[in-house]
Design a protein around this nucleic acid. Structure first.
Lengths: 231, 231
DNA sequence: CATTACAATTGATATATATCATCGTCAATT
DNA sequence: AATTGACGATGATATATATCAATTGTAATG
């Protein structure tokens, strides 16, 4: 059941990146031959912030959480990654280190592509270079929106934004189960887990959502959008 | 007097972008022939968020403020731009609109380069494409740092960050005059102008800085760095 | 089944921060 | 010289949010 044609981009999380489809058939075949396949269990690190970046990674199956580690116990979830999406990062062409960490939210399968190979794809295919630039620019636009939400919206709006993102962009349904913890939701919304819990409770008692443990239902999408916009 | 070799990147504002120097001599000559030169007075808009983006702009002289306009009276200053730097934006290869506004902080001179010309530079020179990708990735890294500062530091730390940026990256001196208002400093630090004023006062009475109107002196860089880091 | 570990919840409280109203100051304009 | 308007400054207050401590639930483990 693919609802992706209905996708509404909330705009404040990093954009998805399935850009490999713009490679030539030859390039894709070559990639298929030389890639390494690795399985990850739920909860395992796919890579860690600060580590060297010898590979570009494509998530073939599962789901992962991309997040910044910011000192003791604090993190910022940048986005969730679904199968088909690419996991590069700004270390590419700069310091070749990972600037964020990635953890599997479900049992997942990833393909590893060596950096030198990826670099060659760009040099040999100027259309692909342009697609990559466009992809980075879209990520930039989403960052601007995230900055706006974090800087100028208060907690209700920020959590509404997170719920809309999960419903519209990640799970493509108003009803979903998730492995994200309350702490993860908090790290997506720049607040504490206690505040997250309290606001979820408010949303529940207003009838806007229902949730228990890891099951969520968005009853009133419009109300959420309104909370994001106005308060 | 160029101190740029001493530049320390604070990391939480968008990176500077003088990337045209990576063009070939031929390309640079061509650019010189076809560019349009425009003067802006202090306080004038160079371009506005939401407007179409027919040109890439190079600031040849002066200084400008790059900021997001976020609803009634709220803005977020992304960075300051000095002469030699490029003013593109994430509309490039995406929707060809401006996603931020730029205002001259001093009397300035800008060169306008048509988008189609810039696009051709990228297509004809794959090294330049790579430089551009690296530039975008560096901007990404700085965004991550900005997210960390905004999400997890409180006001003292955020304002310290802004002062360090001005001193180390923009004015390259512990003593500087600026056309930025208290509201601008607030918009760089995600807080209100009143809070900015109060914290500046605190910093003054602690002997960390001196300031009156538009003159600033950083007496204790180390203390500022410490406030940014620990509180 | 008992035990452990971790996640979710709740309430009380402290703190950080914004808002509002007001006033002074300086420079530009009439 | 009078007027305006923007900016800077300050105090009083309201609000948003984090922190701390305790309790309950829940799922994995032996």
């Amino acid at each position: 059941m693919d609802h992706s044609h209905n996708k509404i981009n909330t705009g404040s999380f990093d954009t998805s990146g399935n850009i490999l489809k713009f490679l030539t058939p030859n390039q894709l075949n070559y990639l298929n031959e030389i890639r390494h396949v690795v399985k990850f269990n739920k909860g395992e690190n796919i890579f860690k912030q600060g580590a060297p970046m010898p590979h570009i990674i494509v998530l073939e199956k599962g789901m992962a959480k991309v997040f910044l580690e910011d000192g003791a116990n604090r993190s910022i979830v940048l986005r969730l990654v679904k199968s088909g999406e690419i996991l590069g990062g700004p270390g590419f062409f700069t310091d070749y280190k990972h600037h964020f960490s990635v953890t599997a939210l479900e049992d997942s399968v990833a393909h590893f592509i060596e950096i030198s190979v990826f670099k060659k794809l760009i040099q040999d295919n100027s259309d692909f270079a342009i697609v990559l630039i466009a992809y980075l620019n879209k990520a930039h636009i989403n960052f601007y929106n995230r900055l706006k939400v974090i800087s100028h919206k208060q907690m209700n709006g920020r959590l509404a934004n997170t719920l809309i993102y999960l419903s519209n962009t990640i799970y493509n349904s108003s009803s979903f189960d998730t492995n994200l913890t309350r702490q993860d939701l908090a790290d997506m919304s720049s607040m504490t887990k206690e505040s997250t819990i309290r606001i979820l409770k408010d949303f529940k008692s207003s009838g806007i959502i229902e949730c228990s443990n890891n099951h969520f239902e968005i009853n009133d999408q419009e109300a959420l959008a309104n909370i994001l916009e106005n308060g």
